Simulated scan of single mutants.
Amino acid sequence: MAGPHRRVIPREELTAWERWELGGIDEERRARQPLPQTATPELPVQVQPEPEPVLLPPVDDPVPAYESLPVAEVSLPTAEEIEAIEQQAMREGFDAGLEAGRLAAEDEIGRLKNVLQSLENVTAGAERELAESVLDLALVLARELVRQEVAADRKLLLPAIVEALSGIPPAGGTSRLYLHPDDLSVLEPMLAIELSGETWRLIADPRLSPGDARIETASTQIDLALPGRWHTLLRVLNRAERDDLQWNAPVSPADGAGSGG
């Protein structure tokens, strides 16, 4: 019987190492045997999940899946809107056509102006050439006409002599007027009226051509020969270098045909 100094420990308060129970005979024998080597536990192999199969629509399905979606309602334009669209399209087309026509017209006008300018240049050049040709022909005809008139009428030299005498100062000494003998015989009676016999002497010079005259004073010498006067006229007309227009130049066949016509 336990004394009063001993305390009974309840079962619940006993720990694992404090608790002892009687084991069986087999348990004691196994306890004396060595423990077998335990194998290293293999790690579990991670298995990838198989991909889920993609389900395709049946081949014999004629309608795709998206066509089954609801279609949005489309509002059609009214008659007034359609007419307004037509009017706007007509205005835009008219404006575009008008602009294109204007540009084409400006281009055509520019080309016509260039053509007209070229024609004007050609016409002006032709007019200048024609005027020059006409003047040349007129000079040739005038030269031949003067030759014929002087040979036919000796009195034609008198106006030129009178005009030359009026332009010189009064002679202070003896002055001379040289004429072709044929001209002197015709003009001497008329010149005696114009010239004073005390101052002027009329001299026949066969070296002069018919229609020529030469005046000599104490201070002046005037050559009234037809070639000289004709050369002066050519110089005024900027044709002094033209040999075919000189007074003694022969008449070309073209000039003769022109004067004869």
Rank of each mutant, 00 (worst) to 15 (best):
G125C: 06
A126T: 12
E127G: 15
R128A: 15
E129G: 15
A131I: 01
E132A: 13
V134H: 11
L135R: 15
L135T: 14
D136L: 15
L137E: 13
L139T: 03
V140C: 11
V140N: 03
V140E: 12
L141P: 00
L141A: 10
A142C: 11
E144F: 07
E144V: 07
E144G: 10
L145N: 13
L145Q: 14
R147H: 10
R147K: 12
V150H: 10
V150N: 07
A151I: 08
A152S: 14
R154G: 08
K155Y: 03
L156G: 04
L157Y: 00
A160K: 11
I161P: 00
E163W: 08
G167M: 09
I168A: 13
I168P: 05
I168F: 07
P170Q: 10
P170M: 09
G172M: 11
G173R: 04
G173H: 03
G173Q: 05
T174E: 13
T174A: 14
R176V: 11
Y178D: 07
P181R: 04
D183L: 00
V186F: 01
L187Y: 01
L187D: 02
E188V: 06
E188L: 05
P189A: 00
L191W: 03
A192P: 02
I193K: 15
G197Y: 07
G197A: 09
E198S: 13
E198A: 12
T199L: 09
T199G: 00
T199S: 09
W200H: 01
R201M: 12
L202A: 12
P206R: 05
P206A: 09
P206V: 05
P206M: 04
L208F: 06
G211A: 06
D212G: 04
I215G: 00
I215Q: 01
E216C: 01
S219W: 11
S219A: 14
Q221S: 14
I222W: 02
D223A: 02
L224K: 00
L224V: 01
L226D: 00
P227W: 01
P227V: 02
P227S: 04
G228W: 07
G228I: 08
W230N: 00
H231Y: 07
H231E: 12
T232K: 10
T232H: 11
L233R: 09
R235A: 11
R235E: 10
V236D: 09
